[in-house]
Amino acid sequence: MKLLLLVLLAIAAMPAAAALKVFATVPEWGALAREIGGDRVQVFTATTALQDAHHVDARPSLIARARSADLLIATGADLEVGWLPVVQRESGNPRIQSGQPGYFEAAQHVRLLDVPARLDRADGDVHAAGNPHIQTDPRNVLAVGEGLAARMAQLDPANAAAYRSGHAAFAERWRTQIKRWEAQAAPLKGVAVVSQHKAWPYLYDWLGMREVAALEPKPGVEPSLAHLALVRDQAATSRPRMVIRAAYNSARPAEWFAKEAKVPAVVLPFTVGAPEAADLTALFDTTVQRLLKGLGT
């Protein structure tokens, strides 16, 4: 009991931290918060680019970090449904509960694609709200950034002006970059591709690419040999130019298909923190470069 009192006293005596404490479920939103907030925010990212944010444990360290967070940035659309609710509830932190200003859901700020017409798990691990992998389109990053800057300003009014100007500078830079990427990616328009997991509808929507098949028979179901062979046979008519997987996906299905269909296997970073994707700009630089390389231009 004495020890507990001592601990409590020690905590009470701690100076209030100046920075806005951000808990980001995935690296892209952590990076975005840093772009907007600079050194006014202290960002913790729950997952890395080599992890599948859908299959993460509610590990003790996440509960410990969520306990002190001022702002929780999630993707939403059920991406984190298997672990985030436990982290929120166990954290004992009312600020980051759903519905509170300290809970920010990126998917609320963009138009979601692949919204299922019917909800049935017979269709695999479908997400009722739509495909949650919104960060593969830089225009979505822009839209989320706008909402996020407003939320950060609301939570930390003392630094509101700094967040607004941080966001303005980022948005201006980002718009120029989007134009640059779009110009570079012009040859990708109309290109047919095969994806390992249906993780890229936003990227394809942005660059005008066409997904002719997925290696996973259903979302979240690992590719089987039978299904792989089917996709390979279809490739004779659909003629994809490359097969695309994320850095965290298993390499084998994409490599098998690449060899069989004689197309390059392209590994895209998917999010910040993957090799050659140290920040948001590098993420799209690398994405566009690798796609162009896959095309052979």
Binding site: L4, I11, P60, S61, A64, R65, R67, S91, G92
Partner: peptide, 12 residues
Amino acid sequence: KWVAPTETFIEL
């Protein structure tokens, strides 16, 4: 239950 405000998870 009480979760300590530390980076290491401590729960009493």
